[in-house]
């Protein structure tokens, strides 16, 4: 989560990560992240056409009005809102670089599609 915020914002802040570990203690934590689903529900849900699929989800910051419809639409809870900018945080695979996969110390992450 730290690497995600570092790769995108150059800072260590897990609250700005596109990977969320849903820790509802004492339940076992679950990882929530965009799984690049075929339906692109978030793209369809966006009333401002701010989201598009171009090998990953791309956000048009100018169009986004922070309504949060994409967060509700995501079937895997893979979207959170950036507490600083109020823009949605959606995995963009670091534009194909997959920094989280490169840095995962236990090699638990691997590239999907």
């Amino acid at each position: 989560m730290n690497i995600c915020s570092w790769a995108h914002f150059g800072e260590y802040n897990i609250k700005r990560s596109r990977i969320d570990v849903e820790a509802d203690w004492p339940k076992i934590p679950e990882i929530a992240v965009c799984l690049a689903c075929e339906g692109h529900e978030c793209v369809g849900a966006c009333p401002e056409d701010a989201l598009a699929w171009e090998d990953w989800i791309v956000l048009d910051k100018e169009r986004c009005n922070s309504c949060g419809k994409c967060v509700e639409a995501c079937p895997v809870n893979g979207i959170t809102m950036d507490p600083y900018t109020s823009l949605p945080l959606i995995c963009d695979t670091c534009e194909g670089d997959f920094e989280c996969v490169a840095w995962c110390p236990t090699k638990a992450l691997e590239r999907g599609r």
């Binding site: 150059g10 800072e11 260590y12 802040n13 840095w103 110390p105």
Partner: peptide
């Protein structure tokens, strides 16, 4: 609960040290 960033002085060198340390631990 909080959203504050923990700043790092020399991020580039720090990341290199982290990489080395992760490898050592592994």
């Amino acid at each position: 609960k909080g959203t504050r960033t923990i700043s790092v002085h020399d991020s580039a060198r720090f990341m290199k040290t982290c990489r080395e340390a992760f490898n050592e631990l592994a």
